[in-house]
Design a binder for these strands. Structure first.
Lengths: 239, 239
DNA sequence: TCAAAAGTGTTTCCCTTACACCCATGC
DNA sequence: GCATGGGTGTAAGGGAAACACTTTTGA
């Protein structure tokens, strides 16, 4: 994958040395969302060395020239959770010239939805990490707060257009849990009756009986399961 | 902007040579839309040399490590039209490993809306170029057809959420022209009465009298102008 | 006088929103 | 028996979609 100097490039000027174009770094960064204790959380880890020793950051890594972008994003998830088979979507490129202290690095950010019950096989042991509620995210290294803000906006838009919320919930969940997830992501409270009407009309939920292992007061809630067939049908034919 | 080898990177392994990460190229590619003769068109140019001699492609260029992404996108517009002050938005990164024959190149694609009447000061003379209707775009070099497809989808989504259509029309335009633009972008025909109701209710148009220089049969159409104050008001307070 | 384009209202339906009370259960 | 959370229906308003004829002008 080394550049060749024997030919000219479409966009390069006449007989310029191509190597001046091939000195950049590319990194991939993941915004990984999870839902736990009725809170939307994001996965961050501590940087151990220069120049951000001790700072928190989103998981990310420089790629080599034979590594694919989405692949790398999956590898990062794999490193974090022992599982790269999760929902991931490209966000945007972040390319401010001085965003990285060691050279010019273009960052390609992805966001992912992690199911805390099913997607996590193991946690990495080589770094300090944590799931932090999105409302309590500290200052992060690089431009990672900016990336997070864009991810937040994207997730907000996606959640109302596609029923991806299920990807963050356990196999079986109550409508109250689902509503709480939506409220966290949208940042506002929703009307209980209207929410239920809407989501049930979508017809992507299967009723799975009542939750009998419930120690909270009040009626035992109905459990629902996500209906993959209906979802796929919608994805093919539109909502 | 050369990488330093005296320190370690967050994501790099213990004492690895950092230079292996800094051998990639980054390019910026523009999808530039224009509207002319009641047709949505895109700007393409001919590549003159290896390895795509004679092929058509979107305007794009490799960047150097001290050049910003959006800046470069504006520079490309500047080269094409003598004007870089146009509407531009980042689309996505395209990073397939073998998308570029000369080395690993990550492409950051932008799309832009070009006003054929006001945005174009001059055309470049160093390359063969043309405005081609989006329905007649040929096979393009690299993965540019893919980029174009993504741009199409993005524009389709944007046009219904924001009144950016005005950016493609002359200073004064008729509702029929505006509708035609929307139909081209959305790829389907719209009901004339419903379209007019909707766009007039938005309250971002100013009536500017009748078009008296009209040699087509039928009534002379009313001309409208885009109302920037109302538009800015909406952008700040939502639609 | 005819062909071509401009312009104009009404009805139906569905989605959204607002809103308040009863039910089951644990303590 | 009371506190806590689960669960339910209706009415009003607004936006989307369907639909056809009259007016103006040039040739």
């Amino acid at each position: 994958m080394k550049p060749s100097n024997t030919t000219n490039l479409n966009s390069a000027e006449e007989t310029e040395d191509l190597s001046v174009y091939f000195d950049m770094g590319v990194s991939v960064t993941n915004v990984l969302y999870g839902f736990e204790d009725e809170q939307l959380k994001v996965f961050i880890q501590k940087i151990s060395r220069y120049p951000y020793e001790g700072a928190w950051a989103l998981p990310g890594v420089l790629i080599k020239s034979n590594e694919g972008l989405e692949n790398k994003s999956r590898e990062i998830a794999e490193e974090c959770f022992g599982n790269g088979d999760v929902y991931l979507e490209q966000l945007n490129a972040f390319g401010k010239i001085y965003r990285h202290p060691l050279g010019r690095v273009i960052d390609i950010a992805f966001y992912g939805l992690i199911n805390m019950e099913r997607d996590i096989n193991s946690y990495r042991t080589d770094k300090e990490f944590k799931w932090i509620p999105v409302t309590e995210v500290p200052e992060l290294a690089y431009d990672h707060n900016e990336i997070l803000e864009l991810a937040r906006q994207r997730l907000k838009r996606r959640i109302v257009n596609r029923p991806i919320g299920f990807k963050l919930l356990p196999e079986e969940f109550t409508l109250t849990e689902l509503q709480s997830l939506y409220e966290q992501i949208l940042g506002r409270s929703l009307d209980k009756r209207n929410f239920r009407k809407k989501v049930l009309k979508l017809d992507v939920l299967l009723e799975k009986g009542r939750d009998e292992n419930n120690d909270s007061p009040g009626r035992n809630p109905l459990l629902y399961k996500f209906n993959k067939e209906r979802y796929n049908h919608y994805m093919e034919n539109g909502f």
